[in-house]
């Protein structure tokens, strides 16, 4: 298992789907463990009744069917598919509505789904917030800068009521996977792809409800992940490029090299005249 995860950490993130399906073939006995430990780009299904798309993950799957958060029905149809208890379903409906607003403000498009389920801890539950965005020029990219641009975010939160009844304990695990391919203006391509996972825990007052607490944690985490990818991870690859090949001084009248040549030429002229 350790070796399999090691391989996933080294294979190009843009090929992670192929890498995982290969590992599943080599290690059929570890398939459920692999599927739960390795995050994959999210798949989409169409809920015809509601005219809306929803995202698939292990938490809305029963057999080969997936439950839509919009209609609470399984696709393809499944009799006796597992449903969340009524009080969680109410929260789930509200979470999906509000998370769609949040998604619209940050992503200017995309698809989101939220799923809730019961856990073993008394009065506790868990939730999974999913977002997928295709930012390519043929997708929902507003500025037409990307040939290909995919963002998948998976946030899983476990919630436990504290003893004092007024606060709850939240444990958030988030993964972001992205791949960007932009045209460089030259006859070339520029591909960046990656995935990172982070955890965050907090004890929060219940005065504004679970949804606000979970939402703020996710918003904070997404900003941190985006910033980390942008500043640290992309920054490191940039640093690498300029370590491999140093940007040489271009020869212009104002550059250091240009100036020193100018001096030499002037000195030569002065010398030849004296």
């Amino acid at each position: 298992m350790e070796a399999a995860l090691g391989l996933m950490r080294r294979m190009p993130p843009s090929l992670s789907r192929t890498a995982l399906s290969s590992l599943l073939l080599l290690l059929p006995d570890h398939s459920s463990e692999l599927l739960s430990l390795v995050d994959q780009p999210l798949e989409v299904l169409w809920d015809e009744g509601c005219g809306k798309q929803f995202l698939l993950c292990d938490y809305n799957r029963d057999g080969d069917s997936h439950r839509s958060p919009w209609s609470n029905t399984y696709h393809p149809p499944l009799e006796d598919g597992v449903l969340p208890p009524a009080h969680l379903r109410d929260l789930e409906v509200e979470a999906n509505e509000i998370f769609a607003l949040y998604r619209d403000q940050y992503y200017e498009g995309g698809i989101s789904s939220v799923y809730l389920w019961e856990t073993d801890s008394p009065e506790g539950f868990a939730a999974c917030f999913l977002i997928k965005k295709d930012g390519s020029r043929t997708g929902e990219g507003r500025r037409g800068l990307l040939e290909q641009g995919l963002w998948d975010a998976i946030h899983v939160i476990e919630v436990e009521k504290a003893n004092d009844e007024t606060t709850a304990h939240y444990c958030l695990t988030s993964t972001v996977m992205l791949s960007m391919k932009s045209a460089t203006g030259f006859q070339g391509s520029f591909d960046l792809s990656g995935s990172i996972t982070r955890q965050m825990e907090a004890d929060l007052s219940l005065s504004e409800g679970h949804l606000s607490n979970m939402g703020r944690m996710i918003e904070d985490m997404e900003s941190k992940l985006r910033n980390g990818l942008d500043q640290v991870y992309f920054g490191k690859t940039r640093e690498m490029v300029f370590t491999l090949r140093e940007p040489l001084d271009t020869l212009t009248a104002t550059s250091a090299t240009g100036q020193s040549i100018q001096h030499e030429v002037i000195n030569d002229i002065v010398r030849s005249r004296t």
Partner: peptide, 10 residues
């Protein structure tokens, strides 16, 4: 703590 790769061709 992650996996980020750059690939460029020109």
């Amino acid at each position: 703590d992650g996996n980020v790769q750059l690939d460029t061709v020109y």
